[in-house]
Amino acid sequence: MQIFVCIKQVPDSGQIRVHPVTNTIMRQGVPTIINPYDLFGLEQALRLRDRFGGEVTVMTMGPPMAVDSLRKALTFGADRGVLLTDRVFAGSDTLATSYALSYLIRKAGETWGAPDIVFCGKQTIDGDTAQVGPGIARRLGLSQLTYVSGIDDMDLTDRQILVRRRGDHGVQVLRSRLPVMVTMMEGSNEIRRGTQADALRAARAEIVQWNAATVGISDTSLCGLRGSPTVVKKVFAPTARDEKAEMISTEGISPSGMAEALVDQIFSRQPGLRDDLFRQAAGH
């Protein structure tokens, strides 16, 4: 089977600093990682390949340096990496991103075989929109299966897939038909340690690089900044959450004393919550 996994190279959020004067993200020297949510899709893809055979192709759109993330994905065992990179994509919002990625996926499909499943990250840790996966599904006519907590069964002959999907109030058990676009829930699996052989192969592998023209995009007005309906008008720092925490004093005070003071403080800050707790305790 053919499995495509869309990943995104993102700045490691633990290392992000905001310039105190200009309010811009200081990217200099911030290490990049594969968006953590994408790895749940990658691991699921590798498991399906282990069971059903076939190939796992990882792909991304980004600047030339995004090859690092693709190479990293190869160390886990993916078969090949493809980068779509072109200046015309700069400044893409989610609509323009799904436009470009849909062309990338089509071209990859023509090259290695149409995908049975396209995995996308549930969301990214930098944009956090959860919109690109659904956008791709819509554009390519794939059935959309987001927030999947497990793939229970798949039949390549009759093209059926059985999944559990995390809803707001419970789990849906869904049967759909390939090809599908899947986003996996966090915690649904854990990315494997790649083998030594994978690491060696990844180091030597050639990452396929395509641009807008190669994937067949002729109308660049739908790409990048021009193709993005949303416009960022203002970027600013949030007003700080009060000051520092109000500290409960501990000097020479027993644990009971501390606990009493803490409860007093909580109740005085949240009288509504206190009243609700009392009401519940009184059995109303």
Binding site: P11, D126, G127, T129
Partner: peptide
């Protein structure tokens, strides 16, 4: 490429 949110201000 950059999503909206990753673009610097100004």
């Amino acid at each position: 490429m950059n999503t909206k949110s990753s673009r610097p201000a100004g």
